[in-house]
Nucleic acid binder design. Structure first.
Lengths: 189, 189
DNA sequence: ACCTGAACACCGTTCAAGT
DNA sequence: ACCTGAACACCGTTCAAGT
């Protein structure tokens, strides 16, 4: 909670750096966008970045949090749609950030902070999917497995170039699978 | 086709370097294992590596080719098993190489040679899965989609830490999906 | 043909010094 | 508190020189 002017200044400066980093990370990739480059485009010396962020991974996480927060806000507008449409929306939205999906996975082993962020993100997203599936009548255990498989498929689509047709088909396949599970659940009752 | 002694010498020296690189890449990761380190443990100067390999990505590809070739040979012994068992075998086999799965994806954009290798590998593996699914009676188009989704799920399992129980369940879920498809195909006839 | 020492252009990060 | 110039320890890679 930023109170006084100093905190607000610090926050806005930090935001400015994150904005530059976000643009460069998305345009050229995490590895190709050096700290020196980010600093130059933000109008500060390279080592000044370390006054605001402990290291490059912390800067990455700040960028990711921004992207996720905006996506969550935008998701409110589509959360009433069928799950299949929501997944297609999600993939389309994160397509421009597909490089960062690969980056996060690549830095999992080297950076504990990235690993922590990744685990929390996965947990949150899976929780949302499980919630929707159970609300639609799927059994809890089946919903958990379906959510895990669904995450993997979404990640796969984001990580691999593919045609619009392929995307449609794979997501329809996934949705069909969860429909079957619901049917089986209902038959069981 | 190595004919004379010189070619054989070159080949064996190359193999020696690849063996060292493989051990280091698997143990410490591609990024952490520097060219200097590989060279030192192989008993040559760092720049000597560039006499045998054009760059670090070429060395990575040589390591990957070795792993894949050995896996293909070993696969002969399990190819009669149900697809579900084959997938579990595949995941168990590449578990120790899970870091390299992330590495390949991370280097897709930066390195054209890695991208080419990755695309060929995906094509080969998907082809094998599609072949098995159609041989078991699944329709061609459905088999293609199932194979794509299956690859994504296997990659997801290799990329994310998980329990043996989770692995069993997700693979069973996937196998169940392909059984349903076969059933539908048969009903259609 | 094969191998090397020395150098190059980077990289993320640290530190002492300034205001 | 905030920012910097200079340096540090690396990195992959290149090149001229040796045998």
């Amino acid at each position: 909670m930023a109170r006084n002017k100093r905190d607000i200044d610090r926050q806005s400066k930090q935001d400015e750096i994150v904005a530059v980093a976000r643009r460069l990370f998305l345009e050229e990739g995490y590895e190709a966008a050096s700290m020196a480059r980010v600093a130059r485009e933000a109008g500060v010396a390279a080592n000044t970045l370390y006054w605001y962020f402990t290291d490059k991974d912390a800067l990455l996480i700040a960028v990711l949090n921004g992207l996720v927060l905006e996506a969550l806000a935008a998701h409110a507008g589509v959360q009433a749609m069928p799950l299949k449409e929501q997944l297609l929306w999600l993939i389309a939205r994160f397509e421009q950030a597909h490089r960062l999906v690969l980056t996060v996975h690549a830095r999992l082993e080297a950076s504990e902070s990235v690993r922590t962020w990744h685990d929390q993100f996965h947990g949150m997203l899976e929780g949302m999917v499980i919630g929707q599936l159970t609300a639609r009548g799927m059994a809890a255990e089946e919903a958990t497995i379906t959510a895990t498989a669904g995450m993997f498929i979404v990640e796969g689509l984001l990580s691999h170039p593919h045609t619009a047709r392929q995307r449609e088909q794979v997501i329809a396949w996934l949705a069909g699978r969860s429909d079957d599970a619901k049917l089986i659940t209902l038959q069981g009752n």
